[in-house]
Design a protein around this nucleic acid. Sequence first.
DNA 1: AAGTGGTCTAGACCACTTG
DNA 2: AAGTGGTCTAGACCACTTT
Lengths: 238, 238
Amino acid sequence: MTSLYREIKRQLIADIANGVVAPGAALPNETDLARRFNVSIGTLRRAVDELVADHILVRQQGRGTFVGLQDRDRFMFQFFRIEGRDGLREFPQLSMQNFAKGRATPAEARQLGLSGTPSVFRIENVLTLQGQPVIFDRIVISAQLYGGLTQAQFEQRKGTIYELYQTDFGITIVDADERVRIEPADAQSAQHLGLAEGDAVLHIERVAHTVDGQVAEFRISTVNTQTHDYVVRARGKR
Amino acid sequence: MTSLYREIKRQLIADIANGVVAPGAALPNETDLARRFNVSIGTLRRAVDELVADHILVRQQGRGTFVGLQDRDRFMFQFFRIEGRDGLREFPQLSMQNFAKGRATPAEARQLGLSGTPSVFRIENVLTLQGQPVIFDRIVISAQLYGGLTQAQFEQRKGTIYELYQTDFGITIVDADERVRIEPADAQSAQHLGLAEGDAVLHIERVAHTVDGQVAEFRISTVNTQTHDYVVRARGKR
DNA sequence: AAGTGGTCTAGACCACTTG
DNA sequence: AAGTGGTCTAGACCACTTT
């Protein structure tokens, strides 16, 4: 039923999730790994192949195999789907509007896969593209998972938010589900996006997962699509 | 530079694109294929692996490897992203509103990757979910690519539209890019979706590609998201 | 029983990066 | 030069489907 290479894949995922191999760190070379798991190098490679396909590991010929690092490039190509009407993909400038600790609503708890009314951090950001505010993000994350997170830590971070999750908490976001619909802008969204309350905005609910499938973030993005689109590209390259 | 398995992959794609192996037909078995290409079975499998990952080929243990067929299941999981707010995924009921032949606008020609003002078919459909009209589709396809297509042929087809493309014209859609934004409903969309003209609707532009990367369809979908969402799921399974 | 794909082995040699 | 991943081989045996 369960093949060898799947078992190896699971063990590698467990090692990454438990921080046995740190983000950015190199794995042992393939012959050593194969020996350690008592499999041939072909079988070891098959397990690593799939983790590379999922962007969890990154191979570099001549250098080694590394745990995928969250950086701007990865964020832009894997998680950021907003681009100009003309196809221009620009890294957004982020401005934090609010940082607070509180109790999750029942809906938020459900999205986070938690029971009861757990303690959460709420972070609100405006994302600017080409000088114009385009996206208003409301992020909800478990206070237990991100224990000790402070506003200063958030503001003084370098790089993306997902990079902060990874470097400061060992949490690597590897994929996300999104649900998109139209909603009338609430007062807050309207203000941040330069719209009138009730104007139609794109409402995106994102549930982001770690390497071992746990929910590590719930985010509602509100987007003004007057000049930008939400873009989904085909997987394959060919 | 170009590895053996990539070359084999390209040859297999060419065979599929040229109809050398028909949709639904079985490929020769792996040992025969490997012999034909003068490679080991491992190398042959690597090429086929990638085509299976792209849903171009389908393997069935004990039976064979087949050119992927367009059916409801494939359409629902690969191309249809609209689902109920509660997560219910339902196959839409389709009602054709219009079928016409005409000249492409410059914008349409550009999306189709054609020059000038080529002859095109325009097909308009209303898609109904749970008894309510939710999606209004405007499809534009090259009259040259789909030579001889008739309204009767379209209306009397069995299965999905992509199944018609495949069985009647040998055109297999394998992936699609989509751009999503909010637009005010025009008179026609509003009427079909039971909205007032100017109401905000989700506007989706889809460019669909064949196995060899050619554009085979341009489609604008207009969606009423009052009860349904546009959903993007994470790739990996784990 | 015969035929198919699925997994696995134990190497070999090549391409690339680094010291 | 040494170490890494990238490609490829020529088998073996297993799991599944069909006849």
